[in-house]
């Protein structure tokens, strides 16, 4: 890669050559870091902590991909994106993948030319209401004022829900989750709607979470997943199978703690061996080395560990696995076989 000082000067300021053309896998390897688009701040999914370290469920996925491709879970440059900038950032090559609780929809996949590489969280849109309001169902919300994040699918679902139930509402558009939270607590809106996981995360930060209820209706399907640019299938495969590796690892009982034992154990389940690269050439097929999946799992643990650490019942957010359990436990997570 040849560069002039003019470009060189700007490289540090940011003019970096080399994206799209050579294929994202090679680009990421050449650059040495993964540019991963995340939200500007949703506690539990992606938010910088007091020390400026990004933490969260989506962040862990980025780290796993970085570990698989580059061998270093910390070689990630997190690019905060808003609802508005996320798709342009991905389309223009500013980021290599987007892990920003983005709902997989037909138009985003087909019309906007992105490729969803799987689902890392099955979500649905719900409503958060103060107990004092005395509402027990979303259908009783006729005439209510609803805070909703703009530019999201929740905004559209909300309009559909009220329209189909033939009741009226006043939307209060907010830009970020933090703003929605403030508006809701100040009473500028009666209920707050977003993905149920986000509601739980929001409620967890309240002073007295017990005074607020999440209404029983889930009014939409919100399959959230990472996405990459359309057309770069090698890179899409890497992201897709990294996610699958994390899910499969949980199913197969491979955790970050027993990873060493498992990979060293010749008696292990053959699928575990294939996953961890002690048998077969899966890594090579993907254009990576043999223990790519082992590194991904070592980064922040398998899917279950990541879930438990960031948004699980032990955390303030306190989400139950529910739909996001393994298929063997009645959930929807079902990784295709590693073969």
């Amino acid at each position: 890669m040849k560069k002039s000082v003019f470009l060189g000067a700007a490289t540090i300021a940011g003019l970096a050559a080399g994206a799209a053309v050579a294929g994202t896998v090679d680009d990421v390897k050449a650059r040495g870091t993964l540019n991963c688009g995340v939200t500007t701040g949703l506690v539990g999914f992606a938010a910088p902590d007091a020390n400026g370290e990004w933490k969260g469920f989506d962040v862990s996925l980025c780290r796993a991909v970085a570990a698989a491709v580059l061998g270093d879970a910390n070689a990630v440059e997190f690019v905060p994106t808003t609802g508005k900038t996320r798709f342009t950032a991905l389309a223009s090559g500013e980021i290599d993948m987007l892990a920003r609780n983005t709902t997989w929809t037909f138009s985003r996949d087909v019309d906007l030319k992105f490729e969803f590489t799987g689902i890392n969280y099955y979500d649905g849109q719900g409503f958060l209401a103060p107990k004092a309001l005395g509402v027990s169902s979303a259908k009783e919300l006729d005439g209510a004022t609803v805070c909703v994040q703009t530019g999201t699918t929740t905004e559209l679902n909300l309009a559909d829900f009220f329209r189909s139930n033939n009741i009226s509402y006043e939307p209060v558009p907010v830009e970020t989750n933090a703003e929605g939270q403030q508006q809701y607590l100040a009473g500028a809106c009666d209920v707050y709607t977003t993905d149920a996981s986000g509601l739980a995360a929001t409620r967890a930060t309240f002073e007295s979470p017990g005074d607020h209820v999440i209404l029983p209706e889930i009014i939409s399907k919100e399959p959230l997943g990472p996405l990459v640019r359309h057309g770069d299938h090698e890179w899409g495969d890497v992201v897709r199978w990294t996610l699958n590796a994390l899910i499969a690892a949980e199913e197969l009982g491979v955790t970050s703690a027993n990873l060493e034992d498992m990979s060293g154990n010749p008696e292990a389940n053959p699928e575990v061996k294939r996953l961890l690269g002690t048998e077969g050439t899966l890594g090579e097929m993907l254009g990576l080395d043999a223990d790519w999946a082992a590194r991904a799992i070592a980064a922040d643990g398998n899917y279950g560990e990541i879930f438990a650490k960031n948004i699980g019942e032990e955390t303030p957010i306190g989400l139950a696995r529910g739909l996001n359990g393994q298929w063997t436990d009645g959930g929807l997570l079902y990784a295709p076989p590693f073969r």
Partner: peptide, 21 residues
């Protein structure tokens, strides 16, 4: 908005110019 959502379409495909610039 032009800087954040449009400008990157006007630079050569193989380069990305950082948001600050």
């Amino acid at each position: 908005f032009v800087a954040s959502v449009m400008l990157s379409y006007f630079f050569p495909p193989e380069s990305t110019v950082d948001l600050f610039l």
